[in-house]
């Protein structure tokens, strides 16, 4: 019996690996998850969830236009992602409308433009894969772009890791000691746009914001150290991706939704059982735990 159940678990994991598209999906999604998870620590501490939602939705017309013109989709997405933030800043400054309203207004406008463009531009764009992601059908050129962007974001975040932490924590001090806060602000926005671009391949535009905030929120409940938070965030993002893809393979479920749902469950687990900040404070159960 034991051997039998072991074999089942074993084949649960190894069977999908015999398919080329599954190996590629698992690898790519893990990479994307790691990048988004890394950034996630900063976004949750900075309070940029809504901004993440805005940027990820706003890249839609950029993706469509880039496809139509035969350009790398990441380029189009990046321009519209950063453009949306610039527009939000401009409208906020020049009108009396409150910021959250402006954010909601701008990103839905961009998103609607994207949907209209898809229906108008005759091409082989698959609306479903943009909206809900298609980690199982990722093309070779997309793989190259994803790897390139992911490495770029990881390198940028690694170099400016501490400065970005300071920027999120106390921008006024950063400015006072001569650190370029303007640069850090746009660096974080740039990374956000790029991460949204790679993230949307895994889970699609609608859910990509989850990749950018849920792992960070989970990690925030589990530690009081910034470095640990980054590590936990990245790990929980990768694990969620793997779980999501396996589950979607075996039970024939929507992959993007499964990945995000796995993240949500991990968050709920932390929410309930985190040693210090969970509802049931597991810490009390372990004597001598520190």
């Amino acid at each position: 019996m034991e051997l039998c159940s072991f074999l089942t678990l074993d084949s649960f994991i190894t069977d999908p690996l015999t398919h080329d598209f599954m190996r590629k999906a698992l690898l790519m999604s893990s990479l994307v998850a790691a990048v988004c998870g890394f950034l996630s620590s900063y976004l949750t501490l900075k309070g940029w969830a809504l901004m993440g939602d805005a940027v990820s939705h706003s890249v839609m017309p950029g993706v469509v236009v880039a496809y139509a013109l035969g350009l790398p989709f990441s380029l189009g997405a990046f321009i519209f992602g950063v453009g949306s933030v610039a527009l939000i800043g401009f409208i906020k400054q020049k009108s009396r409308v409150k910021e959250d309203t402006v954010i909601g207004l701008v990103f839905t406008g961009f998103f609607a433009l994207g949907i209209v463009l898809v229906s108008k531009i005759k091409s082989n764009i698959d609306l479903h894969s943009i909206l809900f992601g298609s980690p199982l059908g990722i093309s070779l050129s997309d793989v190259k772009q994803t790897i390139f962007i992911s490495l770029l974001v990881v390198i940028l975040l690694s170099i400016f890791r501490k400065d970005l932490m300071l920027y999120c924590f106390d921008p006024r001090h950063a400015k006072t000691v001569g650190i370029n806060v303007f640069f850090l602000h746009y660096l974080l926005l740039t990374c956000l746009s790029l991460a949204a671009v790679v993230g949307l391949q895994s889970v699609g535009i609608i859910l990509v914001v989850a990749m950018l905030i849920t792992p960070g929120a989970t990690a925030y409940l589990l530690t009081d150290k910034f470095d640990n938070m980054t590590v936990i965030s990245v790990l929980s993002a990768i694990i969620s991706s793997l779980i999501g893809i396996y589950v979607s393979f075996w039970f024939d479920l929507e992959t993007g939704g499964s990945i995000v749902l796995a993240q949500t469950f991990i968050f709920l687990f932390a929410f309930l059982f985190a040693p210090r900040y969970g509802i049931f404070k597991l810490k009390k159960l372990f004597a001598g735990y520190k």
Binding site: M165, R172, H173, V177, D224
Partner: peptide, 30 residues
């Protein structure tokens, strides 16, 4: 690094996952 700013307690996120050592080290970043 001529000027140091000591913020109001309300002006900072007290739940930020950072230790006393890390905060003080930020004084040296510049």
């Amino acid at each position: 690094q001529t000027i140091a700013y000591v913020p109001q307690n309300e002006g900072i996120d007290s739940q930020f996952p950072i230790s006393v050592w890390d905060v003080v080290m930020m004084g040296r970043y510049g």
